[in-house]
């Protein structure tokens, strides 16, 4: 039972469209295109903020959010969402996806009576856990109702400027 066997040697960044980028560890600060390796630098300064320097061009970057192994990166004004997977977690994902056939959904209900101020998602939008779905005014405060799961919105029942009771259905999310 050699210990080294279990050291993580490779990581995969899995995009939301299931494109897979693999990086070997320790992580190199270069990216290979064809036969050439190009240096990547992550930098920050007063004028530009945080940016990546690659092939003599600066690209603005921002870490929009991260939770656990999920990262949303704003790169040159476009957001990308990745989960970082190890070889085993990738395998595990495949195993679980094949055994868990049925689609599960999450129903978001109003946590308290109030008035819907704004609905921030539409049917078909992809949401991450922690993302606001609906703004509900109650107790004279605007409350963001946030998504407890990653998923796709399948139904939006909340309508702006309507009153809801506690436990009224607001949004349905497909996991």
């Amino acid at each position: 039972m050699g210990n080294e066997k279990l050291q993580i040697k490779k990581l995969y960044a899995l995009s939301s469209e299931n494109r897979k980028y693999s990086f070997s560890l320790p992580l190199k600060h270069t990216i290979r295109i064809g036969k050439r390796e190009y240096e990547v630098k992550l930098k920050a300064d007063e004028k530009y903020g945080t940016y990546i320097l690659w092939k003599n061009r600066k690209y603005p970057v921002e870490i929009v959010r991260s939770s656990q192994n999920k990262y949303e990166i704003l790169f040159n004004d476009i957001s990308y969402t990745f989960t970082i997977e190890t070889p085993f977690s990738l395998q595990r994902m495949k195993v679980l996806n094949s055994t868990r056939g049925k689609i599960e959904k999450e129903i978001i209900k109003a946590p308290m009576p109030g008035k819907i101020i704004d609905v921030l998602v539409r049917e078909g939008s992809v949401v991450l856990r922690g993302e606001p779905l609906v703004i509900l005014e109650a107790m004279k405060m605007q409350n963001e109702i946030i998504s407890p799961v990653h998923g796709t919105i399948v139904k939006v029942l909340a309508k702006p400027n309507t009153n809801v009771m506690k436990d009224d259905l607001l949004v349905e999310i497909k996991l």
């Binding site: 656990q68 192994n69 989960t83 997977e85 190890t86 085993f88 977690s89 595990r92 994902m93 407890p148």
Partner: peptide
């Protein structure tokens, strides 16, 4: 895990896979 993390409060931290759990 989701149930205990969100509804019962039994689980304090949940992760999607074992490696991330142990790293955390």
């Amino acid at each position: 895990a989701e149930v205990h993390a969100r509804k019962s409060g039994v689980a304090h931290m949940i992760y999607d896979d074992e490696e991330n759990t142990i790293l955390a």
